[in-house]
Lab assay of single mutants.
Amino acid sequence: NKASVVANQLIPINTALTLIMMKAEVVTPMGIPAEEIPKLVGMQVNRAVPLGTTLMPDKVKNYE
């Protein structure tokens, strides 16, 4: 099972992601793969992401 990116804290809307905000966890359904964490640093979320929520591609601005 592959790990996904999960919010390590509440991430407010329009916040630029940092390493400390994210952790890798095996979750269902799968979100953004954990190996993409370095790519996500500096990207902004387009909505608030509660603690423990899986980061889905549609929650990150300009994620492809």
Rank of each mutant, 00 (worst) to 15 (best):
N14Y: 11
T15V: 10
A16M: 12
M43N: 03
I32N: 01
L19R: 11
N1I: 14
R47F: 11
V27C: 08
K61W: 10
L51K: 15
T54R: 00
M22V: 05
L17W: 00
N14H: 13
M30W: 09
M21L: 03
G31I: 03
P12S: 06
P33T: 06
E25K: 13
Q9C: 15
E25R: 12
T18G: 07
L10N: 15
P57K: 05
S4I: 01
K39Q: 12
I13Q: 11
K59S: 15
N62D: 13
T53I: 07
K2S: 13
A3E: 10
L51Y: 14
P33W: 08
K23A: 09
A3Q: 10
V5M: 01
P57H: 05
Q9S: 07
A16G: 08
K23C: 10
V6I: 12
V6L: 06
P29N: 04
A16K: 13
P57C: 05
G52Y: 04
P50Y: 07
G52R: 00
M30Q: 12
L10V: 08
T18V: 08
E64N: 13
P38Y: 10
E35N: 12
T18I: 08
K23V: 10
V6N: 02
P12Q: 08
E25F: 09
V6E: 01
L10C: 15
M21N: 10
V60H: 02
K59C: 15
N62C: 13
R47V: 15
I13L: 09
N1M: 15
A3V: 05
V26P: 05
L17V: 01
P12M: 07
I32D: 02
K61I: 15
L55G: 01
A7N: 03
M22P: 02
K61P: 05
V49E: 06
G42Q: 00
P38G: 09
T28V: 12
G31L: 02
N46K: 11
T18H: 06
M43L: 11
I11T: 04
V26Y: 13
R47T: 15
K2Y: 14
L17Y: 00
M30I: 12
Q9F: 08
P33G: 07
E36P: 01
G42M: 02
T28E: 14
N46E: 07
